[in-house]
Amino acid sequence: MTSHDMRRSKNRRGGRSLAPVLLAALMASAPAWADAAPGATACTGCHGPAALGSAIPSLDGHAADEIVTRMHAFRSGERNATVMDRIARGFTEEETRAIAEWLAKPEAARHAQP
């Protein structure tokens, strides 16, 4: 068994026993996508709820300005990245702002029931 494996199986066991808590956390931060800015819903493929405890930072609880500034730094290469520099360059300043504002909304405000 590799160390990665061990970490993973530990995580899975933890996930099982904590299932109700984790599920609640996932639901609490689960966005609704009705008014999502173009591109915004793809972010959660990697950036999960903070409760998952991933090495990839969670986007929960960040202010829109903070996300915009960071994306700008990724785009310009000012901030080191593995992949976010390559992704950030695919979005204009306006698109980035719209995504950041959507991500920064409290969960209830992201829900838009018709």
Partner: peptide, 18 residues
């Protein structure tokens, strides 16, 4: 990137399969 790969899998499968 290897660590991110594992975390991507964990995040996406929990989003998709619960």
């Amino acid at each position: 990137e290897a660590a991110y790969a594992e975390d991507w899998f964990r995040t996406i499968t929990s989003e998709v399969f619960g």
